[in-house]
Design a binder for these strands. Structure first.
Lengths: 135, 135
DNA sequence: CCTTGACTTCAAGTCAACTTGAAGTGGCAC
DNA sequence: GTGCCACTTCAAGTTGACTTGAAGTCAAGG
């Protein structure tokens, strides 16, 4: 597959594909002239990358995951760690969603005066000590 | 309260407080000499900002919310829209978490060979068409 | 009064994840 | 066999959310 085919099949722009290759996230199998050639498998890999990105992993973290693919122990540990992290994020977002939902329906003149909203707020504030990880 | 008190009380660095003031997200009530003076209420506001950030709002969006605080119709509509957005994000992250959890336990030699994982992957890939909104 | 050091401003730097632009190359339809 | 245009490289630009640095100000303790 050439780069534009991969782009079309994956929805990832060619510029991003080149960028990812430079970062070591994907690999081309060769060149036809100057042009990169990719295996169809790369589309799968891109889906995996998209998956990781959506889960809040940085490109570097994803690259690290691919790199340690051969050592299942570390890999699995990392994965379940990330799952835990995600779990915390989900809990926070759920509280947030409920808060927003309530705020949208609440008749209090200002949300700050609504006890439910205030409760949510302090919960969210206390849970806000992730540094860079969860996004 | 002076800026360092607010910083201490809120956990937000002074540099960020100045930055937020410049952006119109918070306001100081005056100066003592050169130094900003804040009302204690600002801590609440900062919690609200943290809440918004954690929910995936940009600073501009948060500023807009504060600005439209007087027009409940638009405000509530925006809030429930954001709640819906959050809901979609949560669903995706939940699938992701389950996938990670499974991958951590799955005995398949490579995750790509596990049908459960592949199913998750394509689900995530298809759900990856948020442009800038959900992060 | 004088020093100290927490504050101030403003410009510039950083970081991640890309995108854009300019200039060059070469595969392939005609 | 030749011209087009999709590809290539490499450097620089972009965006959002801050942080850092240099240089200056001033409230307060001694």
């Amino acid at each position: 597959m050439d780069i534009s085919e991969v782009a079309r099949a994956s929805g990832v722009p060619a510029s991003t594909l080149r960028f990812y290759e430079e970062k070591g996230l994907i690999a081309s199998v060769g060149r036809r002239g100057l042009r990169r050639t990719f295996e169809p498998r790369v589309v799968e890999r891109l889906a995996l990358i998209a998956l990781g990105r959506a889960a809040g992993f940085s490109l570097d973290e994803i690259a690290r995951m691919f790199a340690t693919e051969r050592r299942p122990r570390i890999d699995r540990q990392l994965l379940s760690g990330k799952a835990d992290q995600l779990d915390r994020t989900i809990r926070k977002l759920t509280a947030m969603r409920d808060g927003l939902r309530h705020a949208a329906a609440c008749p209090a003149p200002s949300h700050l005066e609504c006890p439910k909203f205030r409760r949510l707020m302090s919960a969210a504030a206390s849970g806000a000590r992730r540094k860079k990880s969860a996004r």
